[in-house]
């Protein structure tokens, strides 16, 4: 599900996205769709073919061209209200404003901050399923573009983003990756460690077989976040 589009970036990996407001899309995203710590993906345009129908084909599930996405995580939300601060009484009520100056309402917006964690390449298969071709954790080489649409990820996609083998050869064993952890930690943002804990919670649900491995990272983070900062 598409939940918004990129309106600004703070750095090569930090992007600000505006969530679609009322009447912008058919299904308006709810707060659960842009919850803290949720995995999202953004299509990289340069990897797309020039054929104008490709997007449509892809949306219909009939394209078999590989498509590359940047995968990110929502780590902050801001409710934007330009009317905040004008506390005085108004001459026209909200219904009247909506009627007489309809663009005013759209100035209220929800912004989310997304940090890019890596990229993944996938291809639609004739059966309607997706085939995951390659995954990379870390800083993507290409920047995202303004206006690119942000999409929530399904459990299967999140699982595919985290569980793969280093080399594409068939003999190599796939294992759980969290290669983005070092660069999350390197960012200076007070919410990022909390996001890490959220990510680990999600991964624990998706990879019950890797619980001991995840518990090492989780305990480490929890200790540093909860015990060391409080103590």
């Amino acid at each position: 599900m598409f939940i918004g589009k990129i309106v600004k970036s703070d750095s090569h990996i930090n992007y600000v996205c505006q969530i679609y407001g009322p009447r912008e899309v058919e299904v308006e995203p709810g707060p659960a769709d842009y919850a803290f710590g949720r995995f999202v993906r953004i299509g990289l345009r340069s990897e797309q073919p020039d054929d104008p129908h490709s997007d449509l084909n892809f949306a219909l599930g009939i394209s078999h061209e590989p498509k590359t996405y940047a995968v990110g995580v929502i780590y902050d939300t801001i409710l934007l209200n330009p009317a905040f601060g004008s506390l005085g009484p108004r001459l026209s009520n909200e219904t009247q404003v909506e009627l007489f100056s309809p663009d005013y309402i759209s100035e209220k917006a929800v912004l989310i901050y997304v940090m890019v964690l890596g990229i993944m390449e996938q291809r639609g298969k004739p059966g309607g399923q997706a085939e995951f071709l390659a995954t990379m954790h870390g800083v993507p080489l290409l920047s995202l573009e303004l206006g690119s649409e942000i999409e929530t990820m399904t459990d299967a996609e999140v699982r595919a983003f985290h569980f793969f083998s280093d080399q594409p050869e068939p003999g190599k064993r796939a294992y759980l990756h969290m290669g983005y952890l070092p660069h999350i930690i390197a960012q200076r943002n007070s919410l990022l460690p909390m996001v890490t804990l959220r990510i680990i919670d999600q991964l624990e649900r998706l990879f019950p077989q890797n619980l001991p491995l995840l518990s090492i990272v989780k305990r480490n983070f929890a200790w540093r976040l909860k015990v060391e900062t409080t103590g």
Binding site: Y175, H177, M178, P182, P212, S215, I216, R219, N220
Partner: peptide, 19 residues
């Protein structure tokens, strides 16, 4: 030291997980 917290998980696995 925290990588050595789980006896059945080798620290190399943890290191591999974080890339």
């Amino acid at each position: 030291d925290t990588f050595l917290a789980e006896p059945e998980i080798s620290p190399t696995e943890v290191a591999a997980m974080v890339g």
